[in-house]
Nucleic acid binder design. Structure first.
Lengths: 210, 210
DNA sequence: GCACAACCTGACCATACGGTCAATATTTTT
DNA sequence: AAAAATATTGACCGTATGGTCAGGTTGTGC
């Protein structure tokens, strides 16, 4: 068995710098899009010289790809809420809660993903065709089983998933619009709770679990 | 009373050229984003020399603004379906149908709008604060009246509207993802019908109109 | 404490972009 | 049919971008 090497100053610093770059990149890509974002701006936001970015990530596209992958992995993890469920109502509820919380905590990431897909997924098409396709098929199968067992109203599983994705991500992707319609102020804690309750309430009743 | 001037060859040609530019711009802006789109590419797609674009639209931003305004106006018109309704179920149904049809007919426009809002609405913030705010307040009031009259379940009107926007526009904005999950093929007529029925079914039941 | 590797960075480069303009062609008006 | 107005275009320009690189600095292993 290999002894665990101690964490060197280098490794720690590397991780930290990488995080700073990724965090700045997520923000800048979300706010300007891939084309509108500049390496210089990401450098400024992360407080590093531009050349340093290219030391950590060879190209703008490589950096972007990493940002997209990160948010995708977070979403995959949220699905565990769905899998661990003992009932349809509980599973759907937990999944919506998890996705809504990600929308609140990581709105930039959500926007980057949305932007990427809207532009035809030039960078992560392979993810859509493999991981996402499998994931969707698996969850759709679970929903179909629930329906077959008479535990919920018969609805098209894919369209139900689309509705959950659309609605939960809307609070991140269109957060600016929602904020404008909320007198220019971000949703308060109570308003986020109301949003979650509204979404869960309508969807659960909509699939016969009210 | 002024006599109606006959349509000159010039006016017709102008309208035609303008349409060609706007159509190409909508597509290119949707596929590349504002920053990623180039005037040269829009010129190529519309089959005109780049300098000609600047004759019709002084700047890239002016052209973009016009594209965004056009889709917004289409959405406003779709709301008439809502207003003309004699019952909550009929109004919501008709509105969802109208928005779904726009998503199918004008996916590029929807994406341009989504992109604009996601990036903080730098160009159409004034629209959000005036037209959209008024429109939303008006429709929310209608829904509140329906609820007060006991004609539907009490739900938060704003969140209901967000859900309708999110879900219907999802079929345009994330069309590429949906297509990928549909074995790489665009939704057929029947599948679009199923999508509409699913969305309407869940939302209507969700607000107690099932 | 020394040799080596990893890391950092200012200055630089080729390219591509939005936009301009002077010259030309076309249509309308007189 | 001439003159005036409008529309079209290739060539051009300043700027900003993604990316490179040589030289310097810092940390690691022995």
């Amino acid at each position: 068995m290999t002894a665990a090497r101690p964490t060197t100053r280098r490794e720690a610093s590397r991780r930290e710098t990488e995080r700073a770059i990724l965090s700045a990149a997520e923000k800048v890509f979300a706010e300007a899009g891939f084309g509108g974002a500049t390496m210089q701006l990401i450098a400024d936001v992360s407080g590093l010289p531009k050349a340093n970015l290219h030391y950590y990530f060879p190209t703008k596209e490589a950096l972007y790809r990493r940002v997209v992958q990160d948010i995708f992995e977070i979403w995959l993890k949220a699905a565990e809420a769905f899998d661990a469920a003992e009932s349809p109502a509980q599973g759907i509820s937990a999944y919506i809660d998890a996705k809504m919380e990600i929308s609140r905590a990581r709105p930039h990431g959500s926007k980057v993903w949305a932007s990427e897909v809207m532009h035809g997924a030039p960078v992560i098409q392979d993810y859509l065709e493999t991981t996402l396709r499998d994931w969707t098929a698996g969850r759709a199968a679970v929903i179909r089983r629930w329906i077959a067992a008479g535990r919920m109203r018969p609805v098209d599983p894919e369209h139900l998933l689309y509705m959950i994705w659309a609605t939960t991500q809307h609070y991140a992707d269109f957060g600016h619009q929602i904020e404008t319609l909320n007198a220019g102020k971000p949703l308060s804690d109570a308003q986020w709770q109301a949003a979650k309750d509204s979404v869960k309430g309508i969807i659960l009743r909509g699939v016969g679990l009210g």
